[in-house]
Amino acid sequence: MNIKKVVGTLVFLVVVLAVIPWAIAKSGRWDFYYTLTSVALLSIASAGVWLTFYIGRINIGQGAYALAGGYVAAILVTKVGINFWLTIPLAGLFCAGLSVLIGLPILRLRGVYFAMVTLVLTEVMRLATLALPITNGAKGITSIPLPQELSIFGLTLIPDFGTMANPKLAFYLTAVILMILCYFVLWRIVNSRLGHLCRSLQQNEELSASIGVNTAYLRVIAYSISSFFGGIAGAMFVAISQSIYPSSFQVTDSVNFMLNCFLGGLGYVFGPMLGTLVLYFGWDLLFTTGRYQLLIYSTLLILLILMLPNGILSLGIFNRKNPRS
């Protein structure tokens, strides 16, 4: 790590953890917390999709894991009575396990075939949550309590959100910290041998096998990490919205997760984060255009991807010589 990166990281941390909360308090725009919290969580799910891109698979199924993760958290909190904070890793692990079962057969597919199957996966998950008794059908699971206190040996790690004066800020900080952790993990993966092997897989699966890489195993590992991210993002959403429905994550969300990666840049670890931010705000900004919103939005998106095929981070101002830094 060079000085520039360290400084950049520090600036980023100060901005998201201190400057933004300060600016919101100053301006009184509390609604921004909800928006930014959403962006942080969506960018976690997008980070997962980015990792599947990294092994050379187009994943349009992240919505399925976000939905599954959300339901796991909701069910564990309401029906089993587990502390919400513990349901986050459990939701992640559930999705990782599920993705191993699903990934084993479908990860053999490449290109558009894999993409199509994952697209269907989102819809299958939605139908499953509609049909299964435990998910409560179309009515979903509502009135989920706010996260309780988390303490170890009497030491309070996270206070009870229900008694907080400002749970919005607390949610924002939790989401941002979770996002930072996830992107740190992603960055480590990409810069370790695991990431190098993923790249070898992306560029030439046959050669990768011939240098002794267990390609099937590696694909499943990457896909399950990806789905883990989807699951924890979904779980965290449940805590904020205090409800979950089969329609909470749909095909459009899956498509957006993928677009976030494209837009930010597939060659950059922080691409999906930036992509999520731009896409989310872009959509909101166009709200004023009323019924032309979707038309303008889609046109802009197509133009952007045509003009910047390697994503926003490939722009000169970011001045990165090494595409993986």
């Binding site: 790249r199 070898s200 560029q203 030439n204 046959e206 050669l207 096998a209 011939s210 240098i211 002794g212 890489v213 267990n214 390609t215």
Partner: peptide
């Protein structure tokens, strides 16, 4: 068997079509 198992044992092939990792 599978290629990676055979490679692990010590038998490795190169390809007729030049194969390399292009963007490395």
């Amino acid at each position: 068997l599978t290629p990676h198992v055979v490679a692990r044992k010590g038998v490795v092939r190169t390809f007729q079509e030049t194969t390399i990792f292009r963007s490395m």
